[in-house]
Design a protein around this nucleic acid. Structure first.
Lengths: 409, 409
DNA sequence: CGATTAGTTGGTTCTGTCAACAAACTAATT
DNA sequence: AATTAGTTTGTTGACAGAACCAACTAATCG
């Protein structure tokens, strides 16, 4: 029997119709973004790019200047005709709080809306409860705020290594922190109730957004894949400049993608996962077995030890890293086939040993996409000057301020 | 005489800003879609769902009825209050031409805007030149049109097994047809110059759209992955109801995803590709080697032979298919990790031997996503009653008519 | 039992408001 | 004078809101 009661639609199916307010919001975001991407830029140029009427641009720009999101400065170029009045994203007025939750270290920053880091701090993370860790982080953030002299945060962004329901700012599951079902928004608001936005996201996904908004690579398509190699492997993709979330918030959980059917056993219980070959843990294991050493004796070997040995020219270390690069390359080639991004951005150990990883990965991608009759995706090291997941946390809010709209049917 | 068909912007014009016309178009599409998804539906219900004002809905619906895209019929339910006037997508007025180019058979159909197939035909494809094959297909389509008694096509949709630049209706490369750089729009317009839309797309991608628009599975999220197992393996993903294209039109070219590093050699020159384990070609090879037979003697073995043998209970055939199912499952599990869709839709050989494939694939997906703390993606056989790529071709136009807008920053 | 009236829901009409646009204008510069 | 940047003014189009009309059921009453 058909029920007469209309079921509440899940959030992702929400239909957004256009009315004058929504239209204004969208055009506002378009203008804000064109300033961000092309600054310094004049009103007339914005009008050319966006095809919005000059008067419309002037009108919206006026409100953005009033909101202190844009700043105006004269252009001193010597050209015929009236000089343009340049527009830039205004610094020093809008700040975001960024928290990258991780074990053993949680990073905290205050970031200007233009991406400049204003303050930076760390906490050592013991096996805190969610409330304790968020509480400590927020208190730290508020202390930093006092010293920076900012009054309010535009929003608080939080990243977590794990599965995060960004639509609810909720940690579904984090192996790293051993958390499950944590409402981050509520915990943040316990400390700072009146903040405008609280946003949370998986670290690799947010890092992809950071690379797009704050990185220096020129990626006009806004289609990229970010791969973070660390204890595990995290992947985040952006499609048309938006994070690919997935139906159950788990798109890009590719650390356990099968690369070698029946291969090395993995911590996940399966075999032949990418992480079993190209993560820091795998590198360390492989290095130790090459050296004929048992783990943890005399002292635990870290990834830094391997990198140091490699830099000193030690053969075993270099072989180990080459092997990891081989598997990193196969995995990345698979990513390229799946998402076909303009570029794959790599962070973590491969970036630290880029001379070893770059050629191997590039060759693997090229070889595997040879049939496709076009130039293969670029593989680039992350251009971010801070921990990607921390700038990622900031990007969540910055992205929200700059492009706060969504149309879906 | 006033044309039924609204005059529309050229297809490739990228909409950036919102003005009143764009707003109207978007709201129009939202209403049209809500009718398509919930029909029969009243104006008031549309207003509830879309949050558009009743007066706005009435206004837009009036134009849609005038365009003969919607039809009105009284509701005969006995409930208190005035009876609603039900709206449905109107049949018999708007038709699309659908062409699925393939070797050795090209399929052609005339499809009503609501997805009903009105006429259906096939051509055997020799090694035609692009112009010859499109010419023959279009002539056939025009003959069929005469017999169906339709006057004009709303658009022509074409699918190809290969890489297609949908934004230009251009085949970048098709191994199957041995085509490269073919401007399909131009070739179609040589035969039928005045058609409103010519749209082309990769077969698997279009099939995904067909499953969404015309399939019977209930997938509210509009995030799905379609996997077509045939001579090769094709993958198409939809994100929020839109095809994931990729930067170089090659997203989802996952037939050559590495699953078994260093495994079976593949036609592509690499090793351990998915296609080398789960395509029809791989199944046939595996079957023959199990039977100790050389290929092509006495007669070439086809996938139908294997399926027939399996249905007759032959052990070798069943083992072969189980093995293929195992690898299909691993590959699909990787897709689930990458895209995290609500469902994976499977077509081709696995659908034909679903009793063998379903449990193996389902187990593989479940086992591989166990760590994720949620119900795994469903794996479903295609619900389409026609060749997916043919309905896919139709869906390109139907999708265009129903949701023709794009917002990009 | 038929007529009347209240109540409910579907849909339309009319008016106000808002935002984008076009064109004419002012401003600043070589 | 020529050129380019940006503003002002009036117009247009579209959505929202509220009152209104339409169509129906259910209850009530003579």
């Amino acid at each position: 029997m058909k029920s007469l009661v209309r079921q509440r639609k899940p959030r992702h199916e929400r239909i957004t119709r256009i009315n004058s307010k929504v239209a204004r919001d969208i055009n506002r975001a378009i203008i804000l973004n064109s300033v961000r991407q092309h600054q310094p830029i004049s009103r007339t140029k914005i009008s050319d790019i966006t095809r919005l009427n000059k008067s419309t641009v002037s009108d919206i720009v006026a409100t953005l200047i009033e909101e202190q999101l844009l700043a105006e400065s004269p252009d001193l170029r010597k050209a015929i005709g009236r000089n343009p009045r340049n527009l830039t994203v205004r610094q020093g007025r809008h700040f975001v709080g960024a928290i990258s939750l991780n074990s053993p270290t949680t990073s905290i920053a205050i970031v200007d809306i233009d991406g400049t880091v204003r303050a930076r701090s760390e906490l050592s993370t013991q096996s805190d409860t969610p409330r304790d860790l968020i509480g400590r982080s927020m208190k730290k953030l508020m202390m930093m705020r006092a010293s920076v002299g900012t009054h309010q945060f535009r929003g608080i962004g939080v990243t977590v290594a794990g599965i995060v329901d960004a639509s609810q700012a909720r940690v579904v599951y984090s192996m790293n922190l051993n958390w499950e079902g944590v409402d981050l928004e509520a915990l943040v608001r316990e400390q700072l109730a009146d903040v405008e936005i609280v946003s949370a996201e998986n670290d690799a996904k947010a890092s992809a957004l950071a690379e797009l908004l704050l990185g220096t690579h020129d990626l006009p398509s806004n289609d990229l894949v970010f791969v973070s190699f660390g204890v595990g492997i995290g992947v985040g993709a952006t499609i048309h400049g938006r994070i690919l979330n997935g139906y159950s918030h788990a798109a890009g959980e590719l650390g356990h993608m099968t690369l070698v059917e029946g291969g090395r056993p993995c911590v996940c219980g399966s075999r032949g996962c990418w992480e079993a070959y190209a993560s820091d843990a795998a590198i360390i294991d492989s290095y130790l077995s090459r050296k004929g050493k048992a783990p943890g004796r005399p002292a635990p070997t870290t990834i830094e030890d391997v990198l140091r040995a490699s830099n000193n020219g030690e053969a075993e270390a270099r072989e180990t890293l080459s092997e990891a690069a081989h598997y990193a390359g196969i995995g990345i080639a698979n990513l390229v086939k799946a998402f076909d991004p303009e570029a794959v951005i790599v962070a973590g150990t491969p970036k630290l040993a880029w001379d070893i990883f770059r050629p191997v990965i590039a060759q693997s991608v090229e070889k595997n996409t040879r049939l496709r009759h076009h130039t293969p995706a670029q593989v680039l090291p992350s251009s971010l000057t801070e921990i990607p997941s921390l700038l990622g946390a900031a990007s969540l809010i910055i992205g929200y301020v700059f492009t706060d709209y969504r149309i879906a049917v």
